[in-house]
């Protein structure tokens, strides 16, 4: 699973992207967030308030209950501020 982080989510976690091989069963975005939060305090803090976390799976914005697969590109970021 390839994971990307943007904006302050990236700043808080401290990396731009990572490849994860997860042995646990991860079915949805929220499962992945739970897994990441357990990794260490940085992730735990970044994902503390899920109301300000947006997720894209293969570059499409999805809800956090969206199903995911091992070969997906997942991105986490705050609400977008373009223009």
């Amino acid at each position: 699973m390839h994971i990307k982080y943007f904006s302050w989510v990236k700043d808080q976690i401290g990396i731009e992207s990572e490849n994860l091989i997860i042995n646990k069963k991860i079915d949805s975005v929220i499962d992945l967030i739970t897994y990441l939060k357990n990794k260490n305090e940085k992730y735990n803090k970044a994902f503390e308030d899920l109301s300000v976390i947006r997720c894209a799976v293969n570059m499409e914005v999805v809800n956090l209950d969206n199903k995911i697969n091992d070969n997906d590109e997942i991105a986490f970021f705050p609400p977008m501020t373009g223009g």
Binding site: S7, V61, F77, M80, T81, G82, G83
Partner: peptide, 9 residues
């Protein structure tokens, strides 16, 4: 663009 394009300032 303001809310749906993946940019962050």
């Amino acid at each position: 663009l303001k809310t749906k394009a993946p940019f962050w300032k």
